[in-house]
Nucleic acid binder design. Structure first.
Lengths: 132, 132
DNA sequence: CGGGATCCCGTCGGATACTG
DNA sequence: CAGTATCCGACGGGATCCCG
């Protein structure tokens, strides 16, 4: 009866989707997602695959993604320990989108770099001249 | 001749695409992009459309996006001042991707919230019991 | 191996005041 | 209207040490 209007809009500051959008807007999230695309991986593998990520950020990212239902964390209490991470169906549904961002960056990086050179140049020389 | 291997991979820390990916991973970037989808907008309009953004962050985001060639900034020196922002073709090529993230968040927010409840519950109660 | 806990510095980003 | 400039508190995130 009064379960009517779940109208979510990230343009609205108080909307929970705004916070979610912020979470998803994290380079580590996209990289983890894409890294896990082929299949389950162990912590160590992820750490090496995602170059430059600190142990703290990787763990933190994995935890929050597990909490958000994007992936599962399976601990095998052998000695030594073993932990596997695997995308959930929910995580997989986000995968194409994140892969697309990463791909866009890799495809258009050169265009962006050209735009930056252009921009910076026109900042120094305000318009008419050819000087310098 | 030696213009051979522009192999970009955001998994590599030093790759320029990593930095670009980080820039794109910004909630304001996605919101600005989607906001400008219908057509050019003035500063004031954007500020109102994107609820909760501070003037500082909006300006800062718009500048970096202009520098990266995602949008153009056109100042009309009337009194009072008028500034229009409009997506470039490059920006438009990124639009579908960003719109998809925003849409994903709005579509799956409830699934995520359920996953969080589930996760938090199993943290408190480690497994067997039904207690509490 | 897979983390947790702590320290600590840099920057992100909001609030406020002022300008062309 | 569309910003710029400044101050400053919060926290993001790396480095380090330790544990199960």
């Amino acid at each position: 009866m009064d379960r009517p209007a779940p109208v979510y809009d990230a343009f609205v500051a108080e909307c929970p989707t705004r916070a979610l959008l912020d979470r998803l807007s994290d380079k580590w999230v996209s990289l983890v997602l894409v890294a896990l695309a082929p299949g389950p991986m162990r912590y160590r593998q992820l750490h090496r695959r995602i170059d430059g990520v600190s142990q703290k950020m990787l763990t933190q990212t994995l935890r929050s993604m597990a909490r958000d239902g994007l992936l599962t964390r399976t601990v095998t209490p052998t000695v030594p320990l073993r932990t596997d991470y695997e995308l959930t169906p929910l995580g997989r549904s986000l995968l194409p989108v994140m892969a697309a961002i990463k791909a866009w960056a890799e495809t258009n990086i050169e265009a962006v770099e050209r735009a930056r050179l252009d921009y910076d140049e026109h900042q120094v020389d305000g318009g008419t001249g050819a000087a310098r």
